[in-house]
Amino acid sequence: MNSRERILAAIGQNKPEYQPLPEVATFQSDYPDLVAKFSEILRFIGGTPVLVADYEEAEKYIRQTYSDLPRIVSKVPALQQLATTEWDVIDPHQLETVDLAIIQGVFGVAENSAIWVPEERGGHRVLPFICQHLVMILNASDIVPNMHDAYERLNVGESGFGVFIAGPSKTADIEQSLVIGAHGARSLSVVLLQNS
């Protein structure tokens, strides 16, 4: 018997009597204003929510805020004009020098301000992590209350890789002091489009 068979046989012998799944495993969250809740949580975890009307305003905000960053990639078709360099490199290591990445999220979650980003939205899986700063574009109408709603909406195996991103990368490993900017993006702005 190989290890696989041995492990499976041991489980078969030792597992407890069958227990059904719980009938109740999803819960509702009643936030009166999803955008407000999402923004409140995002601020709490070190991100910056920016409410704009449309792509035009989004572009203006990004130009103003990140004027000092030379290498910008944009994976958002409507904001292609902001790009100064290509995201479509052959080897993802070439993205090492990207200062700012602009990526469109699919939807956000109000209770924890996480945004779902499947690999298709980043082009390369590593892009939202390797860039120094990250801007995510999100339709304000695409915010669900909680994680149960999120998985309800999601077909999680559809993409080879997908990630919920909530805030900038961070660590508190040194004496529980919060430091923003660990190995992933040093900052995160979420630009919420109201008219879309």
Partner: peptide, 26 residues
């Protein structure tokens, strides 16, 4: 997959008091 909703709501809140970890990579 939908059970992830339950566990991701519990994990980071229990661990560090964050609403969720920065990255939940699937």
């Amino acid at each position: 997959a939908r059970h992830l909703g339950v566990f991701l709501r519990l994990l980071a809140r229990s661990a560090t008091g964050q609403p969720v970890t920065t990255y939940s990579s699937h």
